[in-house]
Design a protein around this nucleic acid. Structure first.
Length: 348
DNA sequence: CGACGGGACGC
DNA sequence: CGACGGGACGC
């Protein structure tokens, strides 16, 4: 318990040295780039408004900064709230950690630590855990997972609703140092039942923020539509029940009970998506053809990798048909997409 | 060749 | 509380 924690702290310096000697590190860094391990910092929990120049400026007050990089969203360009600062002098990096770590900036408390050597083995190592006993603290959860690797950070979500202050939601995030460590934790802990309870926990890779945003947007759209066209509103709802395009535009499909159609639109099946496909590619492909109300990339529950297919719902038949005609056979990456109206499960 | 979803994702 | 992996022989 407390012993383990103290032990980990003592290991910090050793771990840093271990990175410098690791294969992944030597493999794609040149000889004198090795100094990066002692000069390069990662800065987390930056205020949203902070610019790259401001980041550099702040850290330059400690010593001469070689480079400062604020990480931004690739397409939208906004700050992702973290960045990298590389000093010329290792002693300045040390001083930056001791003086700037924990600094409060605009209601944020920034975190300053040595950056791990850049490598693709450390990416996608964040896990989402649910079904945890509410009695398990952050430390309890860490103790359960730490045997599979080095934990970079962890968080147990707390119920915010009134009267439940401080109560765990039974959901946690744990970021491992290496993706392989996270994979081991999924393999060994997913579906396991902790001592003293009866329900198993779920351990899987966390969705990335873009996936979360898309999911929330879709959910928003769904609820808006439900409120407008169905559900508890009875007065005058009937007259708005049908598509604005009218039955005529459904052509000979009107009245046919096919799985591709539903009251909420026309469901389209897309096959041959790549492993890393995400919702944004579906929005981009189908959006130009008309009203898209829902997109979904089907992923493996544990790995979060696309299983090769997805669904798009479009409001209007004509637009959906045009999208299918245009996009069926479209080459996405190295694969030819197959696009059609959704059929029912069990029939091929 | 492969093939049709669906609980929870940050206090 | 909170987005931990960028960009890297170039005009």
């Amino acid at each position: 318990m407390a012993v383990r924690r103290g032990h980990n702290k003592y290991l910090k310096a050793d771990l840093q040295e271990a990175y410098e000697m690791s294969n992944g590190y030597e493999d794609h860094m040149g000889g004198d780039e090795g100094k990066d391990a002692k000069t390069n910092l990662i800065v987390n929990y930056l205020p949203q408004s902070m610019t790259q120049d401001e980041l550099r400026s702040l850290f330059n007050s400690i010593g001469e900064v070689d480079s400062a990089k604020l990480v931004r969203d690739k397409v939208a360009g906004h700050s992702l709230g973290y960045g990298f600062v590389n000093y010329l002098n290792p002693s300045d990096a040390e001083r930056a950690i001791s003086t700037l770590n924990g600094l409060r900036l605009q209601s944020k408390t920034i975190k300053v630590s040595f950056a791990r050597p850049s490598s693709d083995t450390i990416k996608d190592a964040n896990l989402y855990i649910s079904g945890l006993p509410k009695s398990m603290s952050q430390k309890d959860v860490e103790d359960m997972f730490s045997r599979y690797g080095r934990i970079i950070n962890s968080r147990v979500l707390i119920d915010q609703s009134t009267g439940m202050t401080g109560v765990s939601r039974g959901v946690a995030f744990i970021r491992f140092d290496k993706r392989a460590e996270a994979e081991e934790a999924v393999k060994n802990l997913n579906g396991q039942t902790p001592p003293g309870v009866t329900e198993p926990i779920t351990v899987k890779f966390a969705a990335n923020p873009n996936q979360v945003k898309n999911t929330q947007l879709i959910s928003q759209l769904y609820h808006n539509q439900s409120r407008r066209f169905g559900g508890p509103l009875h007065h005058q709802a009937q007259r708005f029940r049908f598509s604005p395009m009218g039955v005529d535009h459904m052509g000979n499909m009107g009245g046919v009970n096919m799985p591709g159609n539903s009251s909420s639109g026309w469901c389209i099946f897309i096959y041959n998506l790549g492993q890393d496909a995400d919702e944004s590619i579906l929005w981009q492909m189908f959006g130009p053809f008309g009203a898209v109300t829902n997109v979904k990339v089907i992923r493996d529950f544990n790995t979060n990798k696309c299983k090769g297919f997805g669904f798009v719902t479009m409001t209007n038949y004509e637009e959906a048909a045009m999208a299918i005609t245009s996009l069926n056979g479209y080459r996405l990456g190295d694969k030819m997409l197959q696009v059609s109206f959704k059929t029912s499960k069990g029939h091929k």
